[in-house]
Design a protein around this nucleic acid. Structure first.
Lengths: 155, 155
DNA sequence: GCACATTCTGATAACTGTTCTCATTCCCAT
DNA sequence: ATGGGAATGAGAACAGTTATCAGAATGTGC
């Protein structure tokens, strides 16, 4: 899992602004801890767990209580500002959700636990078709493909 | 979540036999606890958590240590005899995996936590197409649609 | 059928990720 | 500036899962 400078979610600043606006509209106050969590989310390439965010903040010299990290993520998720991703190892991961609704899905390596993102229009269309067909008011979906990443395939 | 007599996985006895055979080939001994877990899995309509299986066994007058339930599920999963399903509430659920590879996906109600199953060929095709396109050795996949079930939509 | 090596089992302790509690701090409308 | 209420952080509490270990069950070779 190398660090990337590329952001799969578009301009980080755009999402940060969008998040700040939505939070303000919701009537929340702007505390330092949540602002730090939002900044960390905006700056990440793919999904991160609460503990990873907590650790990243501590490393950046802006320690935030773990409870505040969980609280912030919960609030952001409730407002639709982040997507919760389950990779199957029992930890919840989060990533910024763009207002437009564009999103990606994940490839999870069963060996190293690494996560990569992919997008696929045909897959989205198939999922929406299912949603229309079914007696269920579908509001979200997620897809995880499991297997071995390039590095782990060799090993 | 009403109990159904319909089995989404075909003939329960067929899977039970398949499981027994695979376990024997793998060189495991046949203890009572694991046999009871296999029987419970075979008899269920959709995915169940370890704790649900534990409870079901206790209710049926065949109590099994919770550790044995987890151990059995882990072994069965390792042999590809069960599928692990993540519904997003932090608990792992399991259901029999048929040898042919036929499988379904899940509709998760975000309100009551209920789970329903669905199948869709177009979705499967789209997923396989992604698997071929991507630099990842995909061996499994799962899809969860989230929303409100019929009952919770009204509430 | 019997003895034996091994595996399986179950009670319980330990761990991990997450949520709850509550006293304190901080934000911001007034 | 100040007062009321939300936000924060430390730590306790919790749930699901995994590890440990002594005793019971399995099945193989005789």
């Amino acid at each position: 899992m190398a660090a990337h400078t590329h952001h799969a979610h578009g301009d980080p600043a755009a999402w940060t602004d969008h998040a700040a606006r939505t939070l303000a509209e919701h009537g929340t106050r702007s505390g330092g801890a949540r602002r730090a969590v939002v900044a960390t989310l905006a700056d990440q390439d793919c999904c991160a767990s609460a503990q990873e965010i907590h650790e990243r903040l501590r490393a950046a010299g802006r320690p935030v209580g773990i409870a505040s990290v969980y609280r912030s993520l919960d609030l952001l998720h409730g407002l639709g500002l982040v997507t919760r991703v389950e990779t199957g190892d029992g930890v919840a991961r989060y990533e910024p959700a763009l207002p437009g609704g564009e999103h990606h899905h994940h490839l999870v390596c069963v060996r190293c636990g690494g996560v990569e993102a992919f997008e696929d229009d045909a897959l989205e269309r198939a999922i929406h078709a299912v949603g229309d067909r079914v007696d269920f008011d579908v509001t979200a979906h997620d897809v995880a493909l499991r297997g071995r990443c390039r590095a782990c395939r060799a090993a």
